[in-house]
Design a protein around this nucleic acid. Structure first.
Lengths: 230, 230
DNA sequence: ACATTTGTATGTTTTTTAACATATTTTTAT
DNA sequence: ATAAAAATATGTTAAAAAACATACAAATGT
């Protein structure tokens, strides 16, 4: 039943590798596994965190509702990574919503158990500190680029970001995530029309190739140049 | 010599109140006090953090250089608060610069000493986790408002933010920080011209009153409405 | 005290991007 | 299989904000 969750906790690469067997067992006993279909909401802005959510399989977008309900994607999660841990550790309700963009499996570690173990494991606490600090750096960067770069620069950066986050297919060029034009727009702070238009322009300039939702990067250096120039 | 620093560590309200006398002494011994004049740079993007910087007196702006050197203020610090702790805990070089906007006093706690004490004090670690998590929430919020709100909304929000952060003078209306129009623009993601113009418009609408760098909020509710509408 | 620089103010033009309109294609539901 | 809905595509118009220009005031250095 909970195999997917147990794998995460046992994984040698995970932050839980610093725990002893007894602690790991305790975490496993106090965690639940949930399956989500594509487009399912995992949590909504305003909800109260009940535990540490870990993405075991799938892909998830984290987004905020802005002016007039306009959506801004603030993060894209991949396995194995935490979701919604910011609100949990800030002891706040969620300030963003999470939605599966592919069928996904998540493991939720019960809050009190986690905090109990956290008290005795400074290494675990350090890795959470490092994680939050890194994400804060990323967020501040995003603030600047989303406000200062022009449409082409913002879109180019988003494509590079998606490639960095999810990697590429076997052809070593096709970005390994299949977002709607609307999601690409919401990630890049532009309207859907402009995302579609600018993707088309990039394609006509042979910087990328489009095939439905597949985006193949043909000129990586060119894309980097567009992103840097703004 | 180091009295200003010692005060911070001894302060009952500070995060260090959870430490015992011995630990506090150790921190004091390994911290240095530095005085900065208005417009002095405390650190620059790319510098390596040498310790935990605590603002004891004064006011400091944290900003990033964006496209074409355009400045974006990402945070405003007040006493008693930490500066540059994100980079320190992410184990990265600074991704932003810090500049005193008033004469300021800072206390730098040496890195290794801090981490040593952090290992044995989960409460201290927790308060850093909470701090980073809160600031990340703030940063994500800023990303959305700076990208989605229109000029009037962005400026209104900035004025409310400055009031929240630094409070008001004895008249209960004048914001207790005196920024240049350029800094207000760099905080609000707009050109200096537009900051000046929009401040003038607000003044003509009797929402604020201007007297040099003094900004007096006349219609708080009105300002909130403008900020919310975007 | 004066020149020089820096900051503030405001009008005009141009660029960028959102908003709108309308096809066309693809997906989904029945 | 077919209708309905959703997603994609592209052209046009309108609005927002940057860029530019210029004037004036205040602060600073000599």
């Amino acid at each position: 039943m909970n195999i997917e969750c147990h794998n995460i906790i046992d994984n040698q690469m995970s932050v839980f590798s610093v725990l002893n067997e007894e602690e790991k067992e305790l975490l496993k006993k106090n965690s639940t596994c949930t399956y989500y279909k594509k487009n399912d909401i995992i949590y909504k802005e305003g909800d109260k965190p009940s535990g540490l959510i870990c993405l075991s399989k799938g892909k998830v977008k984290i987004f905020k509702e802005g002016v007039g309900g306009r959506e801004q994607i603030v993060r894209m999660a991949k396995p194995v990574g935490f979701i919604g841990y910011r609100a949990l550790f800030a002891e706040q309700n969620y300030l963003a919503s999470a939605e599966a963009i592919e069928d996904s499996v998540i493991c939720t570690i019960e809050k009190d158990t986690l905090f109990k173990i956290l008290k005795t494991n400074y290494e675990l606490a350090f890795s959470i500190i490092r994680s939050l600090a890194s994400e804060l750096g990323f967020s501040n960067n995003r603030t600047v680029t989303l406000t200062q770069k022009h449409i082409r620069g913002r879109l180019a950066e988003s494509l590079l970001f998606l490639k960095d986050t999810y990697g590429v297919e076997d052809d070593n060029a096709t970005i390994k995530v299949y977002l709607s034009r609307e999601d690409i727009a919401n990630l890049s702070n532009m309207t859907t029309s402009n995302a579609i238009r600018t993707l088309s322009t990039f394609a006509s300039e042979k910087i990328i190739a489009l095939d439905g939702r597949k985006i193949k990067i043909l000129d990586f250096k060119g894309l980097e140049r567009i992103s840097e120039l703004g």
